[in-house]
Amino acid sequence: MTGLLLVVAIAGRRVALPASEVHSVIELDAPSPIPRAPAHVAGLSALRSRVLTVVDCRASLELAPEPGAPAVRPKAAVVEFEGHLYALLVDAVEDVAEARSDCLPLRTALGRGWDRVALGMVESDAGPLLLVGVAGLIAGPGDPCIKAA
């Protein structure tokens, strides 16, 4: 695989999202909560008159919330998936890097949540990175069928 990767930090781990799928990176105001939504759906927000569904990546990976106070305006990668806009909440957006290899299969288990969203490893300017699928992050832990896809 070639192309640009957006390097972000989720739960202290540096991972890559395919930059082609990312519309923009924004600082997010507090989203409006959605009562009874799945844990990883943090709420709704708006970007240039479009509604964003905010996905908390930590919760999507079934990881504990970040220790300490949450960031006032956390960073989020805006992606479009199946016609809907999502804001993926990440700890930090670090860099944009060029991919140097195809997406290589993972040889190790990373834990339940990560295994579900990981697409594989990719070599890049910024070193080897875990490539993460947008679909898995959006789906969250609820639906076990996504990983197969």
Binding site: P38, H84, I138
Partner: peptide, 8 residues
């Protein structure tokens, strides 16, 4: 709305 929210 997004499918995950619709599903609620």
């Amino acid at each position: 709305i997004a499918p995950a929210v619709m599903a609620i």
